[in-house]
Amino acid sequence: MAPALLEQPAQAQTPAGVLGPGAVPVTLTINGKPMKVSVEPRETLLDVLRNKLDLTGAKRVCDRGTCGACSVLVNGKVMYACTILAIDAQGKQITTVEGFALSGGRPHPVVQAFVNHDAQQCGYCTPGFVVAAKAFLDSNPNPTYEQVKDGLGGNLCRCGTYIGIRQAVLEAAKTMKGGSNA
């Protein structure tokens, strides 16, 4: 009897390190800046970016890790923000399209190449593609045409802008090299 009584409060108590299910304060490092925000463990990084931080370049389209419209960089790797818990993104470098697409009003070479090749129509998938393209070029600075098609396979477009995107990524590869050599 006595041991059970002693154990009971221990069981009811949340073990150390367990957070939630209510909102908890977290700090996310987004585009190089620490952002304090209160989130429930069940909130996705995408929803926190869009609803709480007004970073709406990443879009909510399929919301199931299939379309790529929510693509962001996590420690430099491209991932689907709809399928990451915000609480789980703590301590990582999160880069959204807002973090690099324009610097001092100048478009990033990937953005400019998308514009030059009209690689967008309605534009809703485009920021996700731009993020995926940047990640791809960061690790494949000299891609072939076939590699571009493999590297951008994680994003979908409904307007059908793939022809322009292929050319844009090839052009961006050239201009990014030009930029770094200059």
Partner: peptide
């Protein structure tokens, strides 16, 4: 999505204790 608790243990032993 239903609410849930979250933990991010650093060791396997801690993780197993949370299941």
């Amino acid at each position: 999505m239903q609410p849930f608790e979250y933990a991010s243990p650093k060791t396997l032993k801690e993780a197993l204790a949370l299941l």
